[in-house]
């Protein structure tokens, strides 16, 4: 048998060797020291005429080398596929590490903070207990001001020391008191957000809670305008809700801002056509805002002719209800793990 023929035959047989055992059988057939095809071939070389011997020997050796390499590779590949010891049922569940979830209100708050950090805002925190001056009076809401009804207040039975060490008489109805404190302490420019819990005397029901979370913002400098407020709010809304939502800015009233305005975004569930969620208006109210009232600047000793500024306040629960289609605000405070664990880590 000539050498190319043997090689062809080997290739054929190797290709059709389906199992590891078949490959091993081929190894015996071709490479067995006694009676192996390749071994026989080498023996035949010895009996060849002397002149042909070196060339024939080289070819025979090359063939034996080739067969050996091929078989070794095949056997190694088969060995790699063979399990080392017992097999496992890979469809059984893995051993889960314990991983907790942040509260959805935190999740949203941190997203909002991240947006305003990119906008160059400082984050400040303030006391939850406040005095009447910082919560109301300095914000253009003197005693008996009708706007106080907008923020029905929870009062303390007797004064308690607040986190900033001052005697407090009430639970803050917004985080604006922190802004007043900041302006009392630092001159302009100011560019900050103040997130935190706030409290109002509202019964707990589907859409109201006596405790909720707010992020309020304040920007004061020379030359800050209503146009800057509108631009900032639109940029924020598009970051948080997506660039495809339409935005609308319309007049409103808050005692500490003038002019005041509210930001609306187009309703996600009806895409602006009008539905129950948006009270058939096609718009959803997101937040209240306005240009800081000169009376507020006067209360903190800022020059209201030289400086202008804007302020805004957004309720995180409200945003969360809108964003995740949650229908009952109480879910945020019940701490049912079946609810909490739905939110991304």
């Amino acid at each position: 048998m000539d050498i190319p023929q043997i090689k062809q035959q080997f290739d054929r047989e190797l290709a059709s060797a389906a199992s590891e055992a078949a490959v091993r059988a081929l190894r015996d057939k071709y490479l067995a020291r006694k009676g192996g095809v390749a071994s026989n071939l080498l023996r035949d070389v010895a009996s060849a005429p002397a002149g042909e011997r070196p060339a024939l020997g080289k070819l025979a050796n090359e063939l034996k080398q080739y067969i050996d390499t091929q078989l070794t590779e095949r056997l190694a590949a088969a060995a790699a596929r063979r399990p080392a010891g017992e097999t496992v049922d890979v469809t059984l569940p893995g051993r889960a590490p314990a991983l907790g979830h942040r509260h959805p209100l935190t999740l949203l708050r941190e997203r909002i903070e991240a947006i305003f950090l990119r906008f160059g805002f400082l984050i400040v925190e303030g006391p939850e207990l406040e005095d009447d001056y910082h919560n109301f009076e300095a914000l253009n809401m003197p005693a008996d001001h009708p706007a106080r009804d907008m923020q029905d207040t929870l009062y303390l039975a007797s004064p308690v020391t607040s986190a900033v060490g001052s005697p407090a008489t009430l639970l803050r109805t917004h985080t604006s008191g922190m802004q007043v404190r900041y302006m009392e302490k630092f001159p302009p420019p100011v560019r900050l957000i103040a997130p935190g819990r706030v409290y109002r005397r509202d019964d707990l029901d589907l859409t109201h809670s006596p405790m909720f979370t707010q992020v309020e913002g304040l920007v004061v400098d020379e030359g800050v305008t209503l146009a800057d407020l509108k631009g900032t709010l639109f940029a924020f809304a598009h970051e948080l809700f997506g660039p495809e939502r339409r935005t609308r800015f319309r007049p409103s009233f808050f005692p500490y801002t003038e002019p005041s305005g509210e930001l609306d975004i187009s309703c996600a569930s009806c895409r602006g056509a009008g539905c129950a969620m948006c009270k058939n208006t096609g718009w959803i109210e997101v937040l209240g805002s306005g240009m800081v009232h000169p009376a507020v600047f006067e209360a903190v000793g800022y020059d209201s002719e030289k400086y202008t500024g804007f302020a805004f306040g957004v309720g995180i629960e409200r945003l969360a209800l809108l964003k995740w289609g949650i229908e009952d605000i109480r879910l945020f405070y019940e701490n049912d793990l079946r609810f909490l664990e739905q939110f991304p880590l």
Binding site: E113, L117, G120, F121, L122, I123, V124, E125, P189, R191, V219, D221, G223, V224, T225, L226, A227, D228, K230, G231, T232, F234, A235, R248, F249, R250, P251, G261
Partner: peptide
């Protein structure tokens, strides 16, 4: 208000880090 342009307030200096809390 719909005719008010949307601009962005200028930032003159870098901002301080967030509240330590």
């Amino acid at each position: 208000y719909d005719r008010v342009p949307a601009t962005f307030p200028a930032l003159a200096s870098p901002q301080a880090p967030p509240d330590a809390r």
